[in-house]
Nucleic acid binder design. Structure first.
Lengths: 237, 237
DNA sequence: GCAAAAGTGTTAGCTATACACCCATGA
DNA sequence: TCATGGGTGTATAGCTAACACTTTTGC
């Protein structure tokens, strides 16, 4: 078979930045490496691209391995390429960002890895360039969430408006006016009100809502300005 | 030296999608391949990632090789990974998007390549998955340009408001109201009016403007809605 | 003097924000 | 009955979009 001779081949790794929200704080799922180098240090969940899979498939495979979850929100973010980012040999790192419902996460079946959720502002020291990756992912999430309805991916199927508001307030670290927030959200038509209430966090109880799949599918299309303009984050790309 | 043994290494290519604007239409710079496979077919300008460079460096190197230009607007867009996208062997393709001032482009010094500008809506058949890459880049450019002032990168240092408007009208394929367009743009404070006029396209002449580097530096920060909302393109990332 | 492109203001409708009180309930 | 969190409406300011005529000048 013909080859592009004389060119250097490198390893390609996929690293997943997995966001979760516990109702109050954002968290990231990290693994403690079971192999050298940096054995036992904390790291993003990653793995090498295999011969017959695409990057998307690799990311999904890794995510399933770690969390047991399939069909989660996953998006390719950026490819990192400092020649010495991995001290062992050259590895080009493709970073994916995942948003998962933290409650659906199952204790990993795979015992090769030691896994833990870390609070976003209490992360351990990470290996290689993983801190940079996390910072970029956070910027990106803020940027995208400021215009498009994606944070829903962090919540269960049924959720309440106060939960949703906490999600936005947490990400942008600000208070949002309840009335304006509710009005914008409801007028966007992406929510369906249920007849049940969540009584776990108040006596009165808050109505559950779910996504209106019809209108939510136009996902990207939709521009939803839940965040006041002067608080808007910088562009990241 | 230790290695991650048993993992497969692959080639990493960088492909550049180079946008230009001739005052009326958008164009892409393409090369005719000088080597197999697909010799003589048209392709995006690309090359393999070299051992000691980052992807950004590779993209800049390739761009310089082809256009003679340095320090142009260049941004990493997406990484493509279908296992069989290149029939010779597996190549992971990192795509960059470049915006250049078409007038600054110099006939390439490097004779290895045969180069040509193609009208955006009259592209030749491209090799591999390059058509998909181009489509994605176009979406991305529309999306980003609908909110952030980046199209300036396609113009010379001095430009007129009618030129700028043609740039937007061309990208979004629509007429824009001259008065509203001008007002928004000037109130954004990113332009400086010159005392010269461009008489090449009308008898009266149109004033030249240049970017106010101070305020334009906050580039990404700035949200500039020159495009009416109902014409807004879908999200792409 | 006329054709061709550049430049300029006003209004109406809409959207974003600021703001405060009542409701339902469990303890 | 009271403490806690959930739910709701209105008024104002600022922004967006629609719209047409005058200016300049080369021919």
């Amino acid at each position: 078979m013909i080859k592009y001779s004389s060119q250097t081949r490198v390893l390609v790794a996929v690293d997943c930045i997995i966001f979760g929200f516990d109702g109050k704080d954002y968290k990231l799922l990290m693994v403690q490496r079971g192999f050298a180098p940096e054995k036992e240090k904390w790291s993003l969940m990653g793995g090498f691209l295999q011969p017959k899979e695409t990057l998307d498939e690799a990311a999904n495979r890794i995510l399933k391995q770690l969390t047991g979850l399939e069909q989660v929100y996953l998006e390719q973010m950026h490819t990192f390429s400092q020649p010495d980012r991995d001290p062992v040999e050259r590895v080009v790192g493709v970073v994916y960002m995942a948003l998962i419902d933290i409650e659906k996460y199952e204790k990993q079946i795979n015992e090769d890895f030691h896994v833990r959720w870390f609070l976003m502002n209490d992360l351990p020291q990470l290996i290689f360039d993983h801190e940079e990756m996390v910072q970029m992912a956070l910027c990106r999430l803020r940027y995208k969430a400021s215009m498009h309805p994606i944070l829903f991916e962090l919540l269960p199927e049924k959720f309440t408006l106060p939960q949703l508001q906490a999600l936005y307030e947490g990400l942008f670290d600000m208070k949002i006016d309840k009335r304006n927030f509710t009005r914008k959200l409801l007028s966007s038509n992406i929510l369906k009100k249920k007849n049940e209430k969540d009584k776990s966090s108040s006596k009165k109880g808050a109505y559950f809502y779910s996504l209106n799949q019809e209108t939510y599918k136009d996902n990207g299309q939709h521009i939803l300005n839940l965040i006041p303009k002067n608080e808007m984050p910088a562009a990241t790309e």
